[in-house]
Nucleic acid binder design. Structure first.
Lengths: 358, 358
DNA sequence: GCAGTCGATGAAATCGATTGCAAATTGATG
DNA sequence: CATCAATTTGCAATCGATTTCATCGACTGC
């Protein structure tokens, strides 16, 4: 016959209401392995989980059988039974107002870093783009049991929503700046120190009219501006509001800022841009207008994305340790999942990398 | 409405062997909603799935209760019962030989694009980094029932492995070049046409000594080189092997190639680089050595990553339609999942974008 | 040879949802 | 007031794994 000789098949066929719908052909399941190995599913389960309750002989026999048939356990069933789950969700918000993807390589590198760490830890990464204005929905990934916790890249303008999610008990870690009374855990570099370092470096090299480019509605950027102002004060340079320009992370935010700055007639001899992409596009815009970098205008960026060192002129920038950051995000989240309490926020290494653009 | 409030609970408590282990506190489940709404789980299930079998009044009452309690169904249980799964896996290979992440923004942009399309279609994206030499393991995501299909970004050197996976019935779509007798479905731009366009453009602008930068072990790159050679032949220019340089996608592949090219003493007046990142780093290297782009050397890249237009000089490049590509990948995969048969490979728009670097 | 141990295995309950079928409710009609 | 049809709702089986408890054998010692 079909090789299935016992009556369990016909019994099953009788009582089985046909499965609702399912994609693909029949997938191999534990019962199949059990039948072929001449044991029960209990034994197969134990064998595949390296339980000491099965003979080594049985274990290897089953393991080989399973491997040769490309059998892998059904994760849904396993998770259901164990009420566990080795998946974490990562949310990369996008800006719907601009109907534009956030394509900054920094975010994407962070994503890659987190993916690597999770892979190493045996966790899966569920990636989701969500409307930055609706971070609330990120929690669904947790509520539905799909993921044990959520990593959000960037606070954007959603500080209050993040606080609320944390209050609700959603395991949550956010890449971003530390805010006074936040109730969620953040991981990020020391943005004040970063802004200070960048500005300090420009001041030390003799620049006095340093422009700041960024969107201060974002906490990280606001903190960097604090650092910028703090360095100016320390060096006895008065802050000049006309040199603080709004520039979004969208592709031509910095170009527009350069245009406005030039149009304003306000003299300047340096720019501190809040991301490398902004810095690079600003440099491009300056060069097109005949200004030399760093001779006429020195530029410092932020992030140290891979391209920064290959750019021409190579970009002076504030390095955010992306690998350490990914690892810290994952550590903090898993710690929170295990302990149930919100761990302290972590700061990752921040350092000035001096290259040709300043 | 049965008074199902107390006895069902005590009955459950009696027969329940305590759950093995589970993370977090008790999560809300359908039975809770049912109890609070005074109905059975069957009704709750139907209400939440908009079945016509429940009264509108009941449906809205249950829906509001569920929403107010932040209830979301357990996806594992649902998937198990329905033997379905709305998750697809995306695999971004990394090169372990170089112990280096593939950080090319093109791959990452593609990832973002796929994520967007899947979100729109109600699918989740499981992201996994795998050793490029072990693409085999990508199939585990399918075998374990975690995902209904797999998208692989880039063929790398694994053509044979991909063929084998397709033969085994793993729903699979690969971003990459079309090869003669491949048995898996690819989505990608027309690499031969792309290589031809880039070279043709350089030839039309009077360049004759055009270097080619790329790693021809990768199918896509080999195809682009075919286009490059084809264009040369058409214009009656003899191909010069000394101008075809190996350059990897790793960060300083192009810089090294520029060094070798200059060291060889072989004269050249243009470079066709197989990615924008290569092109940008090549331009940086040329400028450092005092060569002007495009006056001394014209450069054309490939991909049209977001930064290409903000670079200085703005990069002439071959645009691969990333959004269309992501959509095509998802379409092809879901089609394969539904139909069970391997759909035809798709070609996405490829076009020359002329900017300042050539 | 027989009770007592210990080790390996199997039977069955369970995780949280869906759904075919049966039962209950309602309304209409004879 | 009884019967029947049309709606709603509930019961219970089911998805594929894990794990408790019971069982079955093989040894051991007396």
């Amino acid at each position: 016959m079909r090789g299935r000789d016992d009556e369990s098949v016909s019994f099953k066929a009788m009582t089985d209401r046909r499965p609702p719908r399912g994609n693909g052909p029949k997938r191999l399941q534990m019962a199949d392995i059990a039948r072929l190995a001449g044991v029960s599913t209990a034994t197969v389960s134990r064998a595949l989980n390296n339980s000491p309750l099965v003979t080594d002989e049985t274990r290897t026999r089953i393991a080989e059988l399973a491997r040769s048939l490309n059998y892998t356990i059904n994760v849904d069933a396993k998770n259901l039974r164990l009420r566990q789950n080795r998946t974490i969700a990562m949310v990369v918000p996008y800006d719907p107002a601009a109907r534009q993807r956030v394509s900054d390589p920094f975010f994407l590198s962070m994503l890659g870093s987190v993916a690597d760490v999770l892979t190493e830890r045996g966790y899966a990464l569920l990636l989701s783009r969500v409307d930055a204005a609706d971070l609330q929905s990120a929690a669904q990934l947790y509520d539905s049991g799909r993921a044990v916790g959520v990593i959000v890249v960037g606070q954007w303008r959603q500080h209050a929503v993040l606080d609320a999610l944390a209050d609700r008990g959603v395991p949550l870690v956010v890449w971003g700046g530390q805010l006074p009374a936040q109730r969620y855990c953040t991981v990020g570099c020391d943005n004040v120190a970063g802004g200070d370092m960048a500005t300090d470096h420009l001041l030390l090299s003799g620049r006095r009219r340093i422009a700041f480019f960024g969107d201060v509605e974002l906490p990280e950027v606001a903190l960097r501006r604090s650092g910028y102002r703090q360095a100016l004060v320390r060096h006895g340079v008065a802050a000049n509001p006309a040199l603080e320009l709004h520039a979004s992370f969208l592709p031509d935010g910095a170009r527009a800022a350069v245009d406005r700055l030039l149009a304003s007639g306000e003299p300047f001899d340096a720019i501190f841009a809040c991301s490398d992409v902004m810095a690079m596009t600003a440099i491009g815009a300056l060069q097109e207008r005949g200004l030399k970098v760093p001779q006429d205008v020195a530029v410092v960026g932020y992030d140290d994305v891979p391209m920064a060192s290959y750019f021409h002129p190579p970009l002076t920038t504030i390095r955010q340790a992306i690998d350490a950051g990914g690892r810290a995000l994952v550590d903090a989240l898993l710690e929170q999942v295990d302990s149930g309490s919100i761990p302290a926020s972590r700061i990752v290494a921040t350092e000035l990398v001096i290259r040709g653009s300043s």
